[in-house]
Amino acid sequence: MTGGPLGKGENMNAVEFEHVKKQFPRMGYMALDDVNVQINEGEFVTILGSSGCGKTTFIKMINRLYKPDFGHIRLFGKDIQNSNPVLLRRKIGYVIQQVGLFPHMTVAENIATIPRILKWDKTKIENGIEEMLQLVSLDPKEFRDRYPAQLSGGQQQRVGLARALVANPPIMLLDEPFGAIDAINRENLQNEIKRIHAQSRKTYIFVTHDIREALKLGTKVIIMNKGHIIQYASPKEIINNPCDNFVIDLLKTLNIQNNYVIDGAGI
């Protein structure tokens, strides 16, 4: 991965926000209010916050689905404002809650979307499909020729992950990817995304409103409220030193829920 919009410089952060502000028309408050943050390469950052706190805005700015009103966003040291958005997005994996699989394409064709755009040769595409399906624990023989309508919600999101991962993007953006999936499947998918991240050592940014999920998956957690980053620290640090009342209140909801999950996550 050299050259192009995500060509890496030395000692650069994978993602850097500098004084980023964003306000949507007809909204009384800032979606992002002077956000500054640096995310190291290889980190699995979860962004935790309630609805409307700016967390989705945050990640949609990274692949330029939204444009900041003010400030700079740099990926591996390069200001994305100077890059072609279409080319930039091909190097950033994107997974959303609604999955967004193309219903008229089979599982294999869905996964082949970016490889086709990138004009990979046929063998490379076939190998990629096979490899990705195995990575997300779907039997290629059974699943590659199915249509999305023939998959359960959990299976669809596995394909969504496979589709985003196939070109091995240096940055993965995940916007509440498991939000609509039942508890048991969510647990499995969480474990798998954690494993996949650990294997790849790419930079993952994962939005959630589930504090258990945020603490379980993140090597670092960003806690957001009303367009501000309240705390950015490791899960352990957040539990031991919550920086203000908002974080303390969040952690209280966790104690009411369950303690063993936190133990299980090895925090």
């Binding site: 279409v86 080319l87 930039l88 997005r89 091909r90 967004g100 193309f102 970016i114 755009i117």
Partner: peptide, 11 residues
Amino acid sequence: PILEAATAMGM
């Protein structure tokens, strides 16, 4: 969501 996914994939 499907259109957004398409855009975000670099189409």
